[in-house]
Design a binder for these strands. Structure first.
Length: 298
DNA sequence: CTATGCACTATCGCTAACGC
DNA sequence: GCGTTAGCGATAGTGCATAG
């Protein structure tokens, strides 16, 4: 994948994320390359908004208008893609960046544990095939009839499968990155609170809808796990309390960025079913071990 | 006593220059 | 081309003086 294609796929990226994705050891090299692409108007950059740490604001990079045009002419982007769909300025910056960090950590899993491969689909990717209404393959829409008929619709941030070639086994995961911007459980049964998300996934499981990924990836899955990456330890606690009250909940696993960065995604960083008193689990089971990213030169 | 303003400091990202 | 380093710049936190 070229740098421009990655910028389209990931919407917004920091210099460090790009260095990780491209396997470049120095941030300076990344910035030079991006500066060159920015002069050619293929890339745009701006200072990161809210959610940054103390020091100087970090720059984030996104594909520019001319970059989108170039990828279209090369036939890499689907015909009819408009720049607005890829433009990082239109994305929820911090949400997208955290999702990207998850993907980078996930890529690292298969290099630490070569017996594993990972296949992932991101709802924000412009490369996914879309239907007439612009809905991508990862978006869900189905009917349930509990009392009266109801339409359930939701879009996970990402869907991925980890395959263990040694044990010939695949596990399916859905990912929700939670920035704490929506309410946990609104009194008026809001459609967009986190409680509704849990209900949606519970119905999804009951209706066996996840099995469509068996056809897509030509494997068998015995259920799935819902991974929730909360943006802070405090938010994680609030979500854990809600999850605990909503059985069946054993399929819902929770973590936060600090645990992800310090241990890596294969570490014992996941709280199951909102039960924080229980021992933390690893998404790779017995292959549990550290996979934190190695430090990069600044 | 509390609120406000301001200088100082810590921390972090960015760039220029240099060597390979 | 890539990687390293020093110095610069931008920002947030801290402590202190002053005003009300």
């Amino acid at each position: 994948m070229t740098l421009l294609e990655q910028l389209a796929e990931y919407r917004v990226l920091t210099a460090e994320q790009i260095a990780r994705l491209r396997g470049v050891g120095s941030l300076q090299v990344v910035r030079r390359r991006l500066g060159q692409l920015a002069r050619e108007k293929l890339v745009e950059s701006w200072g990161r908004g809210f959610g940054r740490r103390r020091g100087r604001p970090e720059k984030v990079y996104s594909i520019g208008c001319d970059g989108t045009d170039l990828l279209q002419r090369r036939g890499v982007l689907p015909a009819g893609t408009i720049h607005d769909q890829i433009d990082g300025r239109k994305a929820c910056e911090n949400h997208q960046l955290l999702l990207n960090w998850f993907r980078i950590h996930l890529d690292y899993v298969s290099s630490v544990l070569p017996q594993l491969t990972v296949k992932l689909l991101s709802s924000t990717s412009p490369f996914l095939s879309r239907d007439g209404d612009g809905r991508s393959v990862v978006s869900e829409s189905f009917q349930v009839s509990q009392g009266r008929k109801r339409n359930v619709r939701f879009v996970p941030d990402a869907v991925f499968a980890i395959t263990d070639h040694k044990h010939r086994k695949s596990v399916l995961f859905f990912l929700e990155v939670d920035m704490g911007t929506e309410t946990v459980a609104s009194p008026g049964r809001g459609e967009h609170d986190f409680r509704q998300k849990i209900l949606n996934y519970q119905l999804y499981f009951k209706a066996n809808r996840y099995r469509r990924y068996e056809k897509l990836w030509v494997t068998t899955f015995s259920g799935f796990r819902l991974l929730v990456l909360a943006n802070s330890a405090g938010r994680k606690g609030a979500l854990a309390r809600l999850i605990q009250e909503m059985p069946p909940n054993d399929f819902i696993w929770l973590t936060d960025p600090e645990l992800m960065f310090s241990n890596g995604l294969t570490g014992p960083i996941w709280t199951r079913g909102g039960a924080r008193q229980d021992a933390s689990a690893s998404i790779v089971g017995s292959l549990c071990g550290p996979s934190a990213l190695l430090p990069l030169k600044r």
